[in-house]
Design a protein around this nucleic acid. Structure first.
Lengths: 339, 339
DNA sequence: CTGTTAGCGCTTTCAC
DNA sequence: GTGAAAGCGCTAACAG
């Protein structure tokens, strides 16, 4: 491996001078700069960033911690994050926690060891606070995206789960639905909790009865059991809801699949709506009625905010950016119910 | 930041001893080990990997270079790659080249500077060879995935584009199609070229006429122009193909959208098939007939192969793993044509 | 404008 | 079983 010493010797200058031209720092005569640059090119020299990091205490490394890159929402988040990171000269380390607090903790340790400059994280849930505290203790700035954790000093990019839920439910109610079920995720995840609370609130405002058996829980992961859904799907037809609000797109897909297996038609027999779009697929077949969130922006803005902290150009007060959902009405919510 | 010196002082041993317990290396009495470990825990000490890297010349950093994480094929690849990487104690840096050779080159430079231990790369195309040579010069092992580049010393995980194409076309031909068009990507990309050649071969074997106006080119990117497709779609109905083979799923989606805009029904008026599945979506609505590739394995195995090189446990001969495609027949290829 | 001297936090090497 | 000295490749701080 060639080092600044090799360059220095060959260009007949001191290593420090080489360092200066690499970093474009300090004053150097045009002549020596040219000379050094020529040797650098000739030897294909590329600085060792481990050595640099050790001195300047910056790595130009960021990390994005999400639950699963395979979830279309997070796929877009990741695209936004890498775009912003690269645009600003950073590299992005990708971590999938699978909603697992342990894994999250392991990642955080690895990232601290790597001395990443900053982290963009969609935490696994409320217990993540312990992991976030660890980042703080190590002075690694982070921005929280998508999922809220209370009482942590950091920037945030959050959606509006109340608004998104209301949009969806009001749409169903306007269509005449009175028996609306909800499949939500674990209430330790802020998005779940807020959508859950908004569900209850919205039904109340509309003087609709809240049937607790219509509120079933599942998880946010892709595989495994989906017991809450099975319950709803197996209800005798007289007891069934006329519409179901799925807390996210994974759940909606699983739900619709289950309904179809039971030969229950969507939307003819049961309308289905959910949070978060499936953009590519919606291009092919605009089917799901959704509250669509600007996933790309969560990643892009989230990354921008950490970088600003890293580079110390942020206001001292932590910021919370709120990204608005948009109701996209498609087939799965059916048509207004005729009395 | 706490260092081994802090630990050493507090545990009343030398820094070297601390280093030994961190790395589980050399002989240490149980007593001092316990003592040191206690202090490490107490001070929440986490080793600085920049300093470690500088000595041992390993970073435990890998990079995945793909064209676009947003493409469902690569999303799965990324999942496979991160899974394997993390399982083996590595972190994964994600890079999106957007089929852009320049961007690829910039990434490679950045990664060399970071001294990543290895790279898993789906190159942008034949000119990528220059970038790969650069990796070789810097002794960074890599595995080529999905896209072939000839005459490079490295491991490979490739699909079988001939087989996948034949499967799809034979299926259409068996259904009675004689006028089959193809929309392919740039021929500087091996997957494009191979699918293109397989198309010609398969038609020949079946004694079908090859109409060069039925062979149109587009690109592999998501946005922008799609001129090749527009041409096909605007053909007067008498001149139209009865089936179209789209070289990948992005192209198929764009194609179907364009066809629908022209009120041409798929599959009733034109059958459509393509390479690579859209798994999540197919769950919701099994529509596209595809040659499905085990995307996850490209990432997983690709990563496994580099790690083996990095850790020097590979056979000296470079390996090529071939992953087989699978024909999944669904609605978009229609039904057999009645004469 | 350029060079010298330390030292970043750790590991390697060689003593003891 | 443990420690001291040197050095990984680079930059900060100072000197000239």
């Amino acid at each position: 491996m060639t080092t600044i010493y090799d360059i220095a010797k060959k260009a007949d200058v001191s290593p420090m001078t080489v360092s200066r031209v690499i970093n474009n720092k300090g004053n150097i005569s045009e002549k020596t700069r040219k000379k050094v640059e020529a040797v650098i090119k000739e030897l294909n020299y590329i600085p060792n960033s481990a050595a640099q990091s050790l001195n300047i205490k910056k790595t130009k490394l960021l990390s994005l911690i999400i639950t699963d890159i395979t979830n279309p929402f997070f796929t877009k988040v990741a695209r936004g994050a890498t775009d912003k990171a690269n645009q600003m000269g950073y590299q992005l380390i990708l971590c999938n926690t699978d909603e697992n607090h342990e894994k999250e903790s392991d990642y955080i340790n690895a990232l601290i060891s790597k001395r990443v400059d900053g982290v963009i994280i969609a935490p696994t849930g409320d217990p993540s606070i312990k992991n976030l505290k660890k980042l703080i203790k190590n002075r690694i700035p982070f921005t929280l995206i998508d999922r809220q954790i209370e009482d942590v000093s950091c920037d945030r990019v959050l959606g509006d789960n109340y608004e998104g839920t209301k949009l969806l439910l009001q749409h169903l109610i306007d269509y005449g639905h009175q028996r609306i079920a909800m499949v939500h995720g674990p209430l330790t995840i802020s998005t779940s909790k807020e959508r859950y609370q908004a569900y209850i609130e919205t039904l109340k405002i509309n003087d609709l009865n809240i049937d607790s058996s219509f509120l079933v829980q599942t998880h946010y992961k892709q595989e495994k059991q989906w017991n809450g859904i099975d319950y709803l799907v197996n209800l005798p037809s007289a007891d069934r809801p006329t519409a179901i609000f799925a807390a996210n797109n994974f759940i909606a897909i699983k739900l619709i699949k289950s309904l179809r297996e039971k030969r229950i038609k969507v939307p003819e027999e049961i309308a289905v709506v959910c949070f978060d779009d499936l953009e590519l697929f919606s291009d092919l077949d605009p089917f799901l009625t959704v509250s669509s969130q600007p996933a790309y922006d969560f990643g892009y803005i989230g990354t921008q905010l950490v970088i600003e902290r890293v580079e110390d150009v942020s206001p001292t007060d932590y910021r919370t950016i709120n990204l608005k959902p948009e109701l996209v009405i498609r087939k799965s919510s059916g048509t207004p119910i005729k009395e």
